[in-house]
Design a protein around this nucleic acid. Structure first.
Length: 490
RNA sequence: CGGGAUGUAGCGCAGCCCGGUAGCGCGCUUCGUUCGGGACGAAGAGGCCGCAAGUUCGAAUCUUGUCAUCCCGACCA
């Protein structure tokens, strides 16, 4: 059923390499799984960054920046948090190199050992909460609504480009509130922001839900998430928003005087999305011709390809295309005029398709003569010749239509691979074929782990918008109040 | 860290079993013909065959070690 679009070489190498490559660090280096994001790939990230940043600001947040290095002692404070990250931290132990006394090159200067090791941030909760202690004294200082755009390092055992790299780019929001209700509302609000972004910008339908205790973020009281289905039927967690309760405030001793003049710990949230979203985008929409980008985050919305034979034609056609480019840019569109003389039109068509450009405008002598242009859309590969008079409107319509169509297609795909299952056999079949299974679960971690062990399916989330319904656990047969979402995941 | 596989030109790979001067496709360079869907012909450039030791007159090929990568587990956004 589901087409497999993976990060395997044989399937993606040609176009995928335009976006990203695995970093080739020093020979024999233990640093593995770092990625180089190439300019075209980075441009896509920038569009995500800009759109999200606007949404954060529209919801009252501001940006700040905290240090890359975190003293080791900070990690000893919140027990479950440190446990969650301890196994994947890069540790700085020295601060100086010196010339190798026994040969060429440099060695670590043993004299320059740090008294306290520094941890390269795997996430910034600890250093931010240490800082918040000094910022927060009174209820008048609250709420603090701060976001940070940064890189983080997690020393994963096994890496995969975009989905799980040793270093990745992300944003992390860290907020502090006077009341539990306000913090909870913030965590929910940011989940909605992510869902809105995924669906309206990335054309990626998502399911909002709550993580089970087992899948919860280390140190959180409640973890909300959005889950998306990729084209092979597997689930990808596209974003998380955590209600941290007072855990970090207690660990870092962040207290404020409330209106009743009583000392109280603050309530917290944190939320983040990463360059993993690019992986989601690729795996959700791409086809055998390469990348397919939703117009709203396509670095190039329209590419113009001229077609000509003779020199006379060339000049005419180039002038014609130049006019089209100007007209489209005047309308605020992101346009690329591919006037390279070194490639043939057919080559250019294929190349821009590979890069996912939503709309292609081609024009040759025939079009100049008839005052037309040829418009091709990336998602369906349909072509149409239209009069140049209304070409702007046609293109706006096309861009809208592509954006909507990509979402619709992804949604229909997800729906046709999502099943409500009531027997263990059905459950296993759905999971094996790759798909989402809504099933009853008895609410215990023990059952969750056993299901994982036997089927590789993980409990993706307890959906927020699911109706309550009495039933029996798919595995244990114990009573259950609602269905939860199971799937194989990346 | 366990199990499996791989490492040869920028990319994708053959050659290894059975040792004897390094091959193919794509890409790249030059010239010509082409140009409305990845053009064709001719001529070129490009390799410490992952690294190290060993066996041998001789190693991409055999042996040992080592490093790295990929896949499957455990871990994770």
């Amino acid at each position: 059923m589901a087409k497999e679009i993976t990060t395997r070489k044989e399937n993606y190498s040609q176009w995928y390499n335009d976006l990203v490559t695995k970093a080739e660090l020093a020979e024999n280096s233990a640093v593995r799984g770092c990625m180089v994001i190439k300019p075209y790939g980075y441009a896509i990230w920038e569009f995500m960054h800009d759109a999200l940043d606007k949404m954060f600001k529209a919801t009252g947040h501001v940006n700040a920046y905290f240090p890359l290095f975190i003293p080791k002692s900070f990690f000893s404070r919140e027990a479950s948090h440190v446990e969650g990250f301890a196994k994947e931290c890069a540790v700085v132990t020295h601060y100086r190199l010196k010339k190798n006394p026994d040969g060429p090159g440099v060695v670590v200067d043993p004299e320059a050992k740090l008294e306290e090791e520094l941890i390269v941030r795997p996430t910034s909760e600890t250093i931010i909460w240490d800082t918040y202690r000094n910022w927060i004294k009174s209820y008048r200082d609250l709420p603090i609504l701060v976001n940070q755009w940064a890189n983080v390092v997690r020393w994963e055992m096994r890496t995969r480009l975009f989905l799980r790299t040793a270093e990745f780019l992300w944003q992390e929001g860290h907020t502090a509130h006077a009341t539990k209700e306000e913090a909870m509302a913030e965590a929910r609000k940011m989940l909605d922001v992510y869902a809105d972004f995924a669906e309206n910008y990335l054309a990626l339908p998502v399911i909002r839900g709550i993580k089970s205790a087992n899948e919860r973020f280390a140190g959180a009281v409640e973890t909300f998430c959005i889950e998306a289905m990729m084209q092979d039927g597997k689930a990808l967690q596209a974003g998380t928003s955590h209600f941290l309760g007072q855990n970090f405030a207690k660990a870092f001793d962040v207290k404020f005087l409330n209106k009743e003049n009583k000392l109280e710990h603050v309530w917290a949230t944190s939320w983040g999305v990463s360059t993993r979203l690019m992986g989601a985008l690729i795996m959700a929409h791409s086809d055998d011709n390469g990348l397919v980008l939703p117009p709203k985050i396509a670095p190039i919305e329209v590419v113009i390809v001229p077609i000509y034979k003779t020199d006379d034609q060339k000049q005419q056609v180039l002038d014609y295309c130049q006019t089209m480019k100007q007209r489209l840019e005047n309308k605020g569109l992101r346009v690329k005029f591919d006037d390279r003389d070194t490639q043939k039109p057919g080559f250019k068509f294929a190349e821009w398709e590979m890069k996912g450009v939503p709309v292609r405008l081609a024009a040759g002598p025939r079009d100049v003569e008839n005052a037309t242009v040829e418009l091709a859309r990336r998602d369906t590969m349909e072509k149409n010749v239209v009069s140049e008079e209304n070409m702007e409107n046609h293109i706006f319509d096309l861009l809208d239509d592509i954006q909507n169509n990509l979402f619709k297609k992804a949604l229909e795909f997800r729906q046709s691979n999502t099943f409500r299952v009531d027997t263990w056999d059905e459950f296993k079949t759905v999971i094996e074929n790759g798909g989402f299974a809504y099933a009853h679960w008895d609410g215990t971690t023990e059952t969750e782990l056993k299901i994982k062990e036997e089927t590789k399916a993980t409990l993706r989330c307890i959906p927020l918008d699911d109706d309550l319904e009495d039933g029996k656990c798919i595995y244990s047969g114990n009573p259950s109040k609602r269905r939860v979402l199971f799937a194989k995941a990346y």
